[in-house]
């Protein structure tokens, strides 16, 4: 039994699901969602490669290669969609999913966290692009961002559990609680943002906006720990 310090499988799976959810929130049509599901299966196959599992999960080089093909195929499909807006919604999210999957596998233990952070960056860029080009409503953007950050958090949690406890230890309860709490908190922030939006945050005079921005940027800079 090759036991290792890799990220724990449950947290990895939850992170991948959350990143798929984030992309799906941005990409509502059926075509896109099919591509997302295919990519999720592909990334799942890639992420389980090289490990030993008790469950009958397909492993081995062939399955990993198949998974990679599925992911690349989904990304290609996303690029060639008829409506370029739909591509923008889909492709960064898929790339983010793939990067999180590589971080969870991990491709390289030392870079596991970096891959996962890169996945978050890709998903965030995707949300920004949708926001710019589509002038989308706030709910989609808020939901997708919250899900993306939650995916990153759960993936990093799995990485740290794997490093400290190895993959053969019993860690399910902790992973589930952590995922649930972060997701719930993310949902709360989304609701708060929506409430702010509803209460006429767009009608501010320029000076107020300027002061607000100055204060907000300063506070955010101070928030860096």
């Amino acid at each position: 039994m090759s036991v290792s310090h890799r990220p724990t499988p449950l947290a990895g799976a939850l992170a991948l699901v959350l990143s798929a959810v984030s992309t799906a929130i941005l990409a509502p049509t059926l075509d896109q969602r099919v591509a997302i599901v295919i990519a999720l299966i592909g990334v799942g196959l890639v992420a389980t490669g090289g490990r030993d599992f008790d469950l009958p999960v397909p492993q081995g080089r062939l399955w990993t290669a198949l998974g990679a093909v599925l992911v690349l195929g989904a990304i290609l499909r996303g690029e060639t969609l008829a409506d370029p807006l739909q591509s923008i919604e889909l492709v960064p999210g898929l790339v983010g999913m793939a990067l999180v999957g590589l971080g969870v596998r991990p491709l390289r233990q030392r870079f596991a966290r970096r891959f996962v952070s890169a996945g978050l960056a890709a998903m965030v860029v995707g949300v920004a692009l949708v926001g710019i080009f589509e002038a989308a409503g706030p709910l989609r953007l808020l939901g997708a961002t919250a899900a993306a950050i939650a995916a990153w958090d759960v993936a990093e949690h799995g990485i740290s559990l794997g490093e400290q406890l190895r993959t053969d230890a019993e860690t399910r309860a902790v992973e589930l609680l952590h995922t649930g709490t972060t997701s719930a908190y993310g949902a709360v922030t989304v609701v708060v943002a929506l409430v702010i939006y509803e209460n006429g945050a767009t009608g501010l005079p320029l000076s107020a906006l300027a002061l607000l921005l100055a204060a907000a940027i300063t506070l955010m800079a101070l928030l860096y720990r």
Partner: peptide
């Protein structure tokens, strides 16, 4: 901060709003 910059530079208030979520999670 990224969403604040994007929202301000591209004049998209919805993007600016996403900064709230980011700040909340921070």
């Amino acid at each position: 901060l990224f969403f604040v910059a994007v929202g301000v530079l591209t004049d998209r208030p919805a993007a600016l709003l996403v900064g709230v979520v980011g700040a909340g999670l921070a």
